[in-house]
């Protein structure tokens, strides 16, 4: 445990040395929320109060981006030779996976926290709602980071293929989900794909917590089960997969 905490504090220092990325995430949020969101919501006539709907979707997109960044960082570390050094430390591989996950979660809190508090504050949400929303976003982060870190074994074969798979997975998961639009507005073929997408359940769960009135939000009970199941299964998969794939890794 002490080794895990030591490594984590080392990686956190390194992560937050790169202040520009944190500022970029807030900059991205500002532009998307105050420019894109405002203008698109003026165009959308069929869904009342689309701006609030979009704001919550944007938080999910940011959570997704930060979680993907964590996975990418792990892979880049491997390519830069840092992983070899970390593997030489007296830390178990499963603990290493957990450590990566925790660094990602803390980075997520720092990067998503201010935009989240801002969106909830201007919509008049209570601290209890803020707390529950944070929990939902963090649970989603665990699932997404688990997927991204578990996929890292592909990067040890080819970084280009990893980048391509991550980019296409992101595109499919974000577009075929209720992040930007409710199920009721999707053509049937898209909606049926979206129903198998965990981000759909995460987005609708967040909107349920925020009490955003949109017809056909998915059942919150089912959403909780899906978000928790994805988080736990990705955690288990990562714990099982990462130790096997890391041994004898030859990436440069």
């Amino acid at each position: 445990m002490r080794e895990l905490l030591t490594l984590m504090s080392f990686e956190l220092r390194e992560t937050f040395d790169s202040v520009p990325w944190t500022v970029y995430f807030w900059f991205f949020f500002g532009f998307q929320y105050f420019v894109y969101g405002q203008l698109v919501s003026r165009l959308i006539s069929q869904l009342p109060n689309y701006y609030v709907y979009y704001g919550t979707g944007l938080l999910i997109i940011m959570t997704f981006n930060v979680a993907s960044w964590s996975g990418r960082r792990f892979v880049e570390g491997a390519h830069e030779g840092r992983l070899r050094y970390i593997l030489s430390l007296p830390i178990r591989r499963g603990e290493l996976f957990l450590e990566q996950l925790m660094v990602g979660l803390i980075a997520n809190i720092v990067r998503i926290g201010p935009p989240l508090v801002f969106v909830l504050w201007i919509n008049g949400m209570s601290p209890a709602v803020m707390f529950t929303s944070t929990l939902v976003l963090l649970s989603m982060s665990v699932g997404i980071m688990g997927i991204m870190i578990s996929l890292s074994f592909i990067a040890f074969k080819s970084f280009d293929i990893y980048s391509a798979i991550v980019a296409s997975t992101s595109a499919i998961l974000i577009r075929f989900s209720t992040i930007l639009y409710p199920l009721s507005f999707m053509p049937n073929s898209y909606a049926s794909v979206a129903r198998f997408n965990p981000l759909t359940y995460g987005s609708d769960l967040l909107r349920n917590v925020l009490n955003i009135d949109v017809s056909q939000l998915l059942n919150p009970g089912i959403s909780v089960v899906v978000v928790a199941a994805v988080g736990i299964s990705m955690l288990t998969l990562g714990m099982a997969l990462v130790p096997r794939t890391l041994e004898g890794v030859r990436s440069s």
Binding site: S45, Q46, A167, Y190
Partner: peptide, 27 residues
């Protein structure tokens, strides 16, 4: 791989976001 993925991203933008928003925008 990467170029194909980038093109794929743009196509999903057109064919998914464009088509779904079309149903939400009347102007």
């Amino acid at each position: 791989w990467l170029v194909a993925t980038l093109i794929g991203l743009n196509i999903t933008d057109m064919l998914v976001v464009g088509i779904v928003y079309k149903g939400m925008i009347t102007a």
